[in-house]
Design a protein around this nucleic acid. Structure first.
Lengths: 218, 218
DNA sequence: GTCAACAGAATTTTCGAAAATAACAAATCT
DNA sequence: AGATTTGTTATTTTCGAAAATTCTGTTGAC
């Protein structure tokens, strides 16, 4: 693994997790000491992240962490529903046994980590498995572009979900596992309309929870 | 404008236009002489293009121009229909006078260049105006993510359309201007269903023309 | 008191060379 | 003869410094 790839992974991680907060200027000198490498691999990583809209760049004035806004979050979630609905229908049509068992496995792994949460389970591992579950639903859709946009939008919305995720107690009465299980059940039974409706509802509720949170914390 | 931005624009241009053909290895030394600059700005540009899937990178083995495939083209055009249909409906709902007159202007500018084509009009200018027309249709959709994905997919499909565009004679009996005019008319009359159907048909025909061309030329 | 111009500092951008790695060819061993 | 190792070359990757640019604080004029 080259340094540039390490820099990319590390910066991406720190931005998504909120360790580098939105709007923060990313000075080359600071990054160089923080990640212990020269300018070149950092610049490469920052340019890739710029293309992904995780950082913004102004010529000769450097990079900053991309800002967050309620409007962008709602926009991204709306597009997630559009694209993932289509992808899910395709996957239900095209998916084979590997796909189906992958969903079962991902759901089970997610559940294990969900149950560990109250006793201090790693919240980032939970997030990783959540991502894996949603990807498992769509992976058989047969469209590389849909999967790419899924990843892009998931990353974008993940940044908004972090505050909720870190806020252990405030679950706002949702039973997340039940939602996931219901989606998985409908998908595995190949009830496309049900599955899409459940998935859309899942995201709409997420959007509302985020909006409520952002209204409080600013 | 920094050198890195120049490098990005030049490389992007040359790849999309096919001057750097699919699969071609992009050696740093060659690029350095070709564009007359050092490695650093080139690497930055290549990294951004990698994130846009216009070039592929393998660690320690350099960059190559991303390949083309019929399957990817059909995938991209299918997604264009999905996303642009939704964007077009939004734009028809939200668009004001600026948007509407922008469409009229873009269509007119496009027509001017189309008419110059038989007498050796610049084909790249034609392509620029074609892009501008399709963007003008959607620009009022109110979703930055949709517009971003539109640009991504337009760029991806543009590479496939180049052979057809350069092939002056072979028009396969389509009246492209009539198709654009019909779309614009339906959009301006706010007949969303008609407009979406016409746009989808426009793309489907394009996909077929590309597929036919690729079957011949390989 | 406000605005413009100017120096100095801070920062990014670019270059050229050194280091690291992979691909290739030749030589040695089984 | 075939396979494995060794050395050479080509290429990418990284670093550190120089160049270019922007920002900041101060001075001077109106």
């Amino acid at each position: 693994m080259t340094l540039a790839e390490k820099a990319y992974a590390a910066l991406r991680h720190d931005i998504i997790r909120g360790e580098l907060p939105p709007g923060k200027p990313l000075r080359m000198a600071d990054l160089s000491t923080r990640y212990d490498m020269g300018f070149s691999p950092l610049r490469e990583a920052l340019n890739r992240l710029q293309a992904e809209r995780l950082v913004e760049a102004v010529a000769l004035r450097g990079f900053t962490v991309a800002p967050l806004s309620l409007a962008e979050m709602e926009d991204a979630l709306r597009l997630r529903i559009l694209i993932e609905s289509e992808a899910l229908r395709s996957a239900i049509l095209l998916g084979g046994d590997d796909w189906a068992s992958g969903i079962v496995a991902a759901l089970y792994a997610l559940k294990l980590q969900v149950d560990r949460r109250s006793e201090g389970g790693d919240v980032w591992e939970l997030e990783t498995r959540h991502h894996a579950f949603h990807r498992a639903l769509l992976v058989a859709c047969g469209s590389v572009w849909m999967l790419e946009f899924f990843e892009r939008l998931y990353t974008a919305t993940e940044r908004y979900r972090i505050p909720i995720l870190l806020d252990q107690g405030a679950e706002s009465g949702r039973d997340i596992h039940a939602e996931h299980a219901a989606i998985a059940e409908a998908v595995l039974a190949r009830r496309a309309d049900d599955a899409v409706a459940l998935l859309a509802a899942h995201y709409t509720q997420t959007a509302q929870a985020i909006a409520a949170k952002m209204a409080v914390t600013g």
